[in-house]
Design a protein around this nucleic acid. Structure first.
Length: 337
DNA sequence: AACCGACACAACCGCGGAGAG
DNA sequence: ACTCTCCGCGGTTGTGTCGGT
């Protein structure tokens, strides 16, 4: 089991490759193939170790390498595969033609990993981090929602409700936290600073909201045009946002809205008009929040767009591969970018 | 203009598996 | 069964670039 002395020899060049070296390597491999990497440098007239040549070829010079920014689809593929395979970069790379394991690894470490962390997700498990302070970004968003609800009319709230479906989904997670005696007890037992106390108070405050107007409205399984005003309607209950692991919200509550985008836009500058088929407005976060003891039944919920109206449609799949789709489509995920 | 920190990416390092002798 | 060599992989480091001060 001796170690390869490959790069230990003195006198071999290290560091960045010059264009001349690249050309020598390309010329040799195009003529002869790489054959033995160990023998290649001498045969190709390069003062490099075989390992360095192999890396240069596989990560940079190979003609089938695709360069440039990762597409949305590639991002999603990486997230999906990473949730299943972990840091198996070479395995992930086999599903992304033209991308090298090194490139994917770098992209993960510099972009995707950071996004997940900033959103409060564990980049290894793709699940929300269980420590409460890691969820602070979500709590802050929820605090903003609470403040909004206290100072705005029902119509304003309804418009915002449409554009912030994702916040509702996040509330699921908070609900879970609030209803988990262990998590709250553990949390309250460990309050050491003023900011922690502030967060604890916020949690309690939000806890008292859980039967408040928004959730109650959603739980109404009837059209609520009077609630929402004349041009915005809740059309009924068709698709589910899975609150099934939250006992007091069963049966799964859901809602579907049909909105006139122009109207919504005029009232809510943050609302984005979606192109048909583009699914970027809302995503139920996190529809597969970690269940305390057993996995919740997986229901399908998503948002599709028919061009002039937004409606809920379907997400699917089971954790953990289920998660990355949600993350990728979560506006917050892209805001962080 | 100079400096500095953050970021992105190329390249290196070291480990372990596979296969040949 | 054991040793040795080669290769591939994942983690880490080095370096260039860019933006802010």
């Amino acid at each position: 089991m001796g170690r390869s002395p490959c790069c230990d020899e003195t006198g071999l060049k290290k560091g960045p490759w010059t264009p001349e070296e690249d050309q020598k390597l390309i010329d040799y491999i195009q003529k002869h193939g790489h054959g033995s990497w160990r023998a290649l440098p001498k045969l190709a007239g390069l003062n490099r170790c075989g390992k360095s040549c192999r890396l240069r070829w596989t990560n940079y010079l190979r003609p089938d390498i695709k360069r440039g920014k990762f597409s949305q689809e590639e991002e999603q593929t990486i997230l999906n595969l990473h949730s299943i395979l972990g840091n198996k970069w070479s395995a992930i790379a086999t599903h992304l033609p033209g991308r090298t394991d090194n490139e994917i690894k770098n992209f993960w470490n510099t972009h995707l990993r950071k996004k997940l962390i900033q959103m409060g997700f564990d980049p290894m498990t793709h699940r929300p981090r269980t420590d409460i302070f890691a969820s602070l970004p979500h709590l802050i968003a929820l605090a903003n929602l609470k403040e909004f609800m206290e100072h705005h009319s029902w119509e304003e709230q309804a418009v915002r409700l449409q554009s912030e479906t994702v916040q509702m989904a996040r509330l699921q997670y908070l609900q879970y936290l609030l209803q988990s005696p262990a998590s709250m007890a553990g949390f309250s037992d460990n309050i050491n600073t003023a900011s922690e106390m502030e967060t604890y108070n916020l949690l309690n405050s939000l806890s008292s909201m859980k039967d408040g107007p928004v959730l109650n409205a959603i739980q109404l399984e009837t059209p609520t045009s009077s609630f929402l005003g004349t041009s915005t309607t809740l059309q009924g209950i068709h698709d589910s946002i899975p609150f099934s692991h939250l006992p007091d919200l069963q049966p799964p509550c859901s809602f579907q809205t049909s909105l006139n985008n122009d109207m919504v836009q005029s009232q809510n500058p943050n609302f984005k008009v979606l192109s048909p088929g583009k699914n970027s407005l809302d995503s139920p976060w996190p529809s597969s929040t970690p269940a305390p003891t057993e996995a919740p039944p997986v229901t399908e919920t998503s948002i599709t767009n028919t061009g002039d109206a937004c409606s809920t449609s379907s997400y699917g799949g089971a954790p953990p591969s289920f998660w990355p789709d949600l993350l990728l489509e979560d506006p917050l995920f892209h805001e962080i970018a």
